[in-house]
Design a protein around this nucleic acid. Structure first.
Lengths: 211, 211, 211, 211
DNA sequence: GATGAATGAGACTTCATTCAT
DNA sequence: AATGAATGAAGTCTCATTCAT
């Protein structure tokens, strides 16, 4: 976590620093990003950097935190405000929102994608973030089962894994679309995957199997 | 590609060097791995390293190549030698083989997982490897449709995406099992995902929908 | 050009660094000089070196610049402040001044002499410096012709070549006097060369030839 | 001096090695030339290199020796076989021969030009070669004085310096003509310098001065 | 003698972090 | 708190020369 001095800064300055950091991390990943460059881009003195942050890693984790919180907030908002919709309708909205977020600021997606290289760092981060995002999906599934939308055999654990796999592959698609605009094709492909999930999981008259 | 001098070495020495490299890359990813360390672990002089390899990247790509070829060989063998099996049976065997491979040498899986940090390098590598592994899956799907195992609406493109997403999430599971032994739970989870795929894609009497 | 940080240093420190660099370059030429050694001699940390200069070449070119500017300033001063003297008198003063300069700091002459090994570097440097020094000589010649001191047939181009050849051979003499003190003999030889030039170029009553 | 093993080689092989060395030295100068490259170009094993030569320097000095001997032989031949010609006629022929030599193999001129960077090496080399080339010129001058071609005041020492200065500047011209073909302009300039020398040094009716 | 692998000192440079004002 | 210079460990890579077969 940044030091108190960072939070005492004017918002404009804080923004400037964060923008610079996000740019640098998105372009180069954690390892290849340079404090020098962040400092240059945000036009703060190098000494100040270490007065605001413990070290490079401190800032990076703070940036991750921001990204993660933004994503979670978005997802949770949707989950809460669309309780009347079906599970898959909700998922579709989440995907659309995720794509929109990635289009609005592709840097954020890039940063998480590039996370993987640094083992100890990544482990720490995952331990922190993974559970709650998993929880969100599971609670969505549970609602679907309570509603009778989903077949009885559907296991929340299983479904959550499926959906997480999808989210990962979404990131991949976004990452590989180099211009920052998600091609329409990618969106369609994505929605068809949800169709498939729906087709496979929805309750049927002759509900007998799955496993 | 390593230089000729490398291939002229005794097998024991070549192995020693590769083992050292794989260890280092698996532990630290490409960026954080040090030639110095590889050289120390394999007890070769630093000068020799550069007589065997163009540079650090050269060795890394060679290691990736080995991993990739090993995986592909395994997958292709299965695809060819089990033409009598159903698509999903084949997939199950592939998954089992993949898990076994990862259990036998978890370092190999780790290396590919940590690839992502270096964008230009990764792009190059993907361009080289992705297509053929995609082809394998697609040919599997096509066979399933020709056999009448798969529903008519199943799009090879879509299915290949689904399966690739699964493979990604498999890697993830393996990676997160830090002790090197894939928990039995992970295997079960995995197989249940294939069950789901089968359930969703198989041809039915009343085959009408999906999309 | 050195970075701003270099010019912000105290003069003593800047001098110390330059002295160390000049020593090293004079003794070993560009190729054989080591940043390590410059850093050791000036007792600055290696990291500082790269905070002051882009790289080894940057410092070298800066040193050349200093030498060149010093020489040009000296020569130009003489040319301007002795307009009443004959061309050859001026040349004699220049030579004396050049010798004195070389005696005061023989390292400077040595550095330019050793420049030649690195072709691309040298070409760049020559492109930068040669023209203006050529101009100085030519303007001197032109004045001589306007004055009627020089024979009509004397071609500024030719004369400038002659004189440049002399300056080269002067450098050579200085370089080969390894103790740093220009032997009196060398000076005399030098002046006799100018005598010869004067004898050959001065206007005569029966001015008919040359070419 | 190369070892006996070198001189025992077949002429074709010896030539091949020398050609490779001359290429490398001409392109890069002594410091920047690599034994590796010479070995590669001449397709001899690296081990053989050190069986033929003491070390890199040994080969370099041998190459210098060849160049120098070639030049001296050419100059001496001219001096001997044209005793009937005037001093300056002889010089003109020498210059033409020198230019032709440089045109036929510009690499040779380049090598001597790039010599200067390595102080101890150069000093040694100069000590070895300079005297005899100086002698040649001086003997030429002496003949001129004995003939009565040259003015009484002409000092052999002085004249030899002058001519050496010219030869230096000739090298320079050749070096800077990057295409390897000496521009016609350079030749003309050169000859006009000799004209000047002749004009300045030749005996006149009213021979009174110079000094 | 021929061969080519082995060797390691040492070159340049980067960069996160600390220090001093 | 702000500033930017100071610091040095560590990185990659080169290359002349020696060694072993």
């Amino acid at each position: 976590m940044p030091k108190e001095t960072f939070f005492n800064l004017s918002e404009t300055k804080r923004k400037r620093i964060l923008e610079a950091a996000i740019d640098e991390f998105a372009e180069n990943g954690y390892e290849n990003s340079r404090v020098n460059e962040i400092v240059r881009r945000s036009t703060i003195p190098k000494g100040s950097f270490y007065q605001y942050f413990e070290n490079k890693c401190d800032l990076f984790r703070y940036v991750l935190d921001i990204i993660y919180k933004k994503k979670m907030e978005m997802m949770t908002d949707i989950e809460i405000s669309h309780k009347e919709l079906s599970v898959f309708e909700t998922l579709r909205i989440m995907v659309e929102a995720g794509i929109k977020m990635a289009e609005e600021d592709p840097r954020l997606s890039k940063i998480s994608d590039k996370l993987v290289a640094n083992k100890p760092l990544m482990d720490e981060v995952l331990k922190e973030y993974a559970p709650s995002s998993d929880d969100l999906i599971k609670s969505l599934i549970r609602r679907g089962k309570d509603n009778g939308e989903l077949a009885d055999w559907v296991d929340p654990e299983l479904a959550s894994n499926l959906i997480t796999a999808f989210i990962l592959s979404l990131s991949e698609m976004i990452r590989s679309s180099n211009n920052g605009i998600i091609a329409e094709a990618a969106r369609e492909k994505y929605l068809s995957l949800i169709n498939f999930l729906e087709y496979g999981m929805k309750r049927r008259e002759d509900d007998d199997s799955g496993k």
